[in-house]
């Protein structure tokens, strides 16, 4: 087993930077109306110039927002996952471990049950997103408060608190469903499965802002995350402000993942599997791992959403089902082969 070199990391990043646009173009070309790559690119160009040809409308207005949203959400989820795994010093950590996903789900359910019937269309979608976002943030703040003490934040306590909050949010969600009418129930379950079909310019703008925040802020902490892998007191002796680092990372990840859940529902395994694979390719150094995870997460979710659209066309599968179906077997094989690449 050879180790990772800076040259190797650059090669992987370059490869991913080529792969991502390729995946996006293929996604733009495929769907209910199949276009060739040339037609898709041509349509995109026409739409950009303001010519509303059939290909232009399909590619520019229907498919492009969705593909872009998939890429943004994938990048946020994967980068957040990589940062959480580093922070918890646990390669199996997932953003949902700190309660964001469960809290966001509950927030969304509350909004759907309380006001879902009275709101229609875009207002309803926005309200549900806001509920998920707030729910996710509240959950992670609660987990953080439980785990923080004068002596600092205990990672083990935080994981356990995350489990507790997840269970509590799940129970409250079930209680809500118990009292919900069948229309609300359907909405809740659809939303939970995840989907990118609600892509529009407002959501894209929101996703872009969050993505810029996450992808801009997390790499600033790359060296600190590397030092944290040695252990918290070791990082402290290396001059790292450990408490500030932990607090800031948790808030950034909560915002990022909460927003993703709000925009696209719960999308499983992107935050867990992508950083894992990237660590095999570029090593655990976060200076390479974070950007590689962002690119790969974006590409993976674009491909997964594309599959969700075409596999059973014209019926669309929720993208969360696709990522789980692809992710779980892959994840299990990773677990079995962990020793092969030096992870303990």
């Amino acid at each position: 087993m050879s180790t990772h070199t800076p040259a190797g990391t650059r090669a992987v990043l370059l490869g991913l930077a080529v792969l991502l646009p390729l995946c996006m173009v293929i996604a733009l070309a495929s769907g209910a109306v199949t276009l060739s790559t040339g037609e898709a690119l041509g349509g995109l160009a026409q739409w950009w110039r303001g010519e509303y040809s059939q290909a232009g409308v399909i590619v520019g207005q229907i498919r492009l927002p969705r593909v872009l949203l998939a890429a943004l959400v994938g990048a946020i989820l994967a980068t957040s996952g990589a940062a959480m795994q580093g922070l918890f010093r646990n390669p199996l950590a997932d953003p949902s471990l700190i309660g964001v996903t469960a809290g966001a789900s509950l927030g969304a359910s509350v909004v759907i049950v309380l006001v879902g019937a009275s709101l229609q269309g875009i207002t309803a979608v926005t309200a549900v997103s806001l509920g998920a976002f707030v729910g996710g943030l509240l959950a992670v703040l609660l987990v953080y408060r439980l785990a923080a003490s004068e002596a600092g934040t205990s990672v083990a306590t935080m994981l356990l608190a995350g489990i507790a909050i997840t269970a509590l949010a799940g129970a409250l969600g079930n209680l809500l469903e118990f009292h919900a009418d069948s229309e609300s129930l359907r909405r809740i379950s659809l939303w939970r499965m995840g989907g990118l079909d609600g892509a529009n310019s407002q959501r894209l703008l929101f996703a872009t802002a969050i993505c810029l925040l996450v992808l801009g802020a997390l790499p600033v902490f790359a060296r600190r995350l590397n030092a944290l892998l040695l252990g918290e007191s070791e990082a402290r002796y290396l001059g790292i402000d450990v408490e500030f680092t932990k607090r800031t990372l948790i808030v950034i990840v909560a915002i990022g993942v909460g927003a993703c859940v709000a925009l696209a529902g719960t999308i499983a395994f992107v935050g867990l599997v992508v950083p894992h694979i990237m660590r095999m390719l570029v090593g655990p150094d976060h200076r390479g791992l974070l950007p590689a995870s962002a690119l790969a997460g974006a590409a993976l979710l674009v491909v997964a959403d594309n599959l969700a659209r075409v596999v059973m066309a014209p019926t669309e599968l929720p993208v969360g089902i696709v990522t789980a179906i692809v992710g779980v077997p892959f994840f299990i094989s990773l677990l079995r082969q962990r020793s092969h690449y030096g992870m303990q």
Binding site: R89, L229, G283
Partner: peptide
Amino acid sequence: LLPQQSPLSFPFSVEEVIQLGRT
């Protein structure tokens, strides 16, 4: 400080671990 035990469980190369001392 050299601790008695170090919990590092991520596959850094030896060079990378030593370079962390220059953080």
